[in-house]
């Protein structure tokens, strides 16, 4: 499974996307709903929605966690839930390994 190094670097620079991934990794393989993610990562649901699927100018769709293939949408009984993909799990593992290394550039 190939992981684009520029994707990892981009996620690392975005605190909100990183926090979302870390939380979804914590509950993996369970999915959860948007409001719950927003509560845990202490952010506004609209920002979380933007990070997950893209929203206006702030988060363009092509760099959202879903379009990068890191998070998938699970639909159940008309509700949308979000779950880390296998690929997303690998990215989280690398982000954790690179935490010390990346902190040198912060």
């Amino acid at each position: 499974m190939y992981i684009d190094p520029f994707v990892i670097r981009s996620i690392n620079r975005s605190e909100l996307r990183k926090r979302i991934l870390l939380y979804l990794n914590e509950i993996y393989p369970s999915p959860t709903y948007l409001a719950e993610i927003a509560r845990v990562v202490k952010s506004d649901p609209s920002n979380v929605r933007g990070a997950l699927i893209g929203l206006g100018n702030r988060y363009n769709g092509s760099s959202s966690l879903v379009s990068l293939g890191l998070v998938e949408i699970v639909e159940r009984d008309g509700f949308k839930y979000y779950r880390l993909t296998e690929y997303g799990k690998k990215v989280v593992e690398l982000l954790k390994s690179y935490h010390l290394y990346y902190s040198r550039f912060m």
Binding site: I3, P5, F6, I8, R9, L94, S97, Y98, Y101, Y102
Partner: peptide, 16 residues
Amino acid sequence: PKILMDFDKDADFWDM
């Protein structure tokens, strides 16, 4: 900047 062959600056790519 898209050359990722430096052992220190691109240690993440080397690790991959």
